[in-house]
Design a protein around this nucleic acid. Sequence first.
DNA 1: AACCTGACGAAGA
DNA 2: TTCTTCGCCAGGT
Length: 127
Amino acid sequence: MSEFKDRVIDIIEQVPYGKVASYGQIAVYAGVPRAARQVGWILNRSEGKLELPWWRIVNNQGRISIKGTEFNSPLLMKNLLEHENVDVNDDYTFDINAYRFRPSREQLKQWHLDDKYIETICSRFGI
DNA sequence: AACCTGACGAAGA
DNA sequence: TTCTTCGCCAGGT
């Protein structure tokens, strides 16, 4: 779990300004396709402790789905995204595909994933 | 120990 | 299209 967590954190740090990635996307890049839930768990538990662009990680439906803690809230997340020119609707939805982070093949290779797996990802996300 | 609950999401039915 | 199931797995009760 520790290795997976390290990978998740490393990848999230690389989601650029003005872009977003889904929990499932991060899980895929970290090498465990169905661990979206763990990604959410890691973010939830690391809030306030790590310097991560946590507001750029959203659900795959294009909706802000956090509940909110003393460190964050859906509104704060919305404001941070809008500050990066991501157009978020009042109901916390937005066009995720318009802003989705699409790593290059070079970037995917950097995350120590085997070539076959990378091909699967590329075809799935159209890279 | 058993069971529940998530900042999730793909696959079936 | 909407609803359920299940993978994933740490923490709480």
